[in-house]
């Protein structure tokens, strides 16, 4: 299997190329410079592998939540590239990718992924690593005030992941009671973890046509009167 994966949902800009069980990644911390970097990263990964875009099986992208503009950049680039090369697309949750990344780095299997959604809210997702070593969602992702974040299914052994845990550390800890043992607020979404999750989606036949590379914002109320 050959997949390109990209993420531009936060301050980092990353692209990864998965070829069977090997993943190569390019990553830069580059706020607001995604448009200058992302296509070059994708080209460079293809160049290094000797592959052409049309030889891939699909393009995966971080579909959100995250910066509205950021997730739209990844979705738009995915739409354009996938349409041009007749490839399907695979949208992957940025929260799931953060949880997957934490498992890759630290081996932790119970993960509460949180991003700072501003306006005193977090984007929230509760993930458990299954037998296949992949992040599986428990319940639903949501945007909510940190003191109303959904509680995990068990009361101990959870790890807090992502910058939501620095923005609202005390409130989230209080809300979770004793369930959270460690926090890694420095963790962020990376394309390599999107690629890992996308490979399974692809194997399960859950790829989509290019025009369905659409962001999931979670925050759908963006005007006062809507």
């Amino acid at each position: 299997m050959k997949l390109l994966a990209i993420d531009t949902s936060g301050d980092a800009c990353s692209a990864a190329l998965l070829v069977d069980d090997r993943v190569q990644q390019e990553l830069q911390i580059a706020p607001r410079r995604h448009g200058e970097l992302i296509l070059s990263m994708m080209q460079s990964l293809l160049d290094d592998s000797g592959l052409q875009l049309h030889e891939l099986d699909g393009i995966a992208f971080g579909r959100g939540p995250g910066s509205f503009t950021g997730v739209r950049i990844a979705a738009s680039v995915t739409q354009g590239a996938a349409f041009a090369a007749d490839l399907p697309v695979i949208p992957i949750s940025t929260l799931a990718a953060m949880a997957q990344g934490q498992f890759r780095r630290r081996g932790q299997r119970r993960l509460l992924a949180a991003l700072d959604a501003r306006m005193d809210e977090v984007y929230w997702g509760c993930y458990q690593i299954g037998d296949a070593g992949l992040a599986e969602l428990h319940g639903e992702e949501c945007v909510c005030p940190p003191d109303r974040a959904p509680l995990p299914p068990t009361s101990e052994g959870w790890a807090g992941v992502g910058p939501g845990w620095s923005a609202y550390q005390a409130i989230l800890q209080a809300r979770m009671g004793g369930a959270v043992e460690t926090t890694s607020p420095e963790a962020f979404c990376e394309a390599r973890d999107i690629a890992t999750l996308a490979a399974t989606e692809f194997s399960a036949g859950r790829q989509l046509p290019p025009e369905q590379a659409i962001p999931i914002y979670l925050r759908d109320q963006v005007t006062r009167t809507a």
């Binding site: 448009g35 296509l39 994708m42 080209q43 875009l53 739209r72 950049i73 738009s76 680039v77 995915t78 739409q79 354009g80 590239a81 996938a82 349409f83 041009a84 090369a85």
Partner: peptide, 10 residues
């Protein structure tokens, strides 16, 4: 811009 530039790339 992102769709257009990526289409041209592809």
């Amino acid at each position: 811009s992102a769709i257009g530039r990526s289409l041209a790339w592809g």
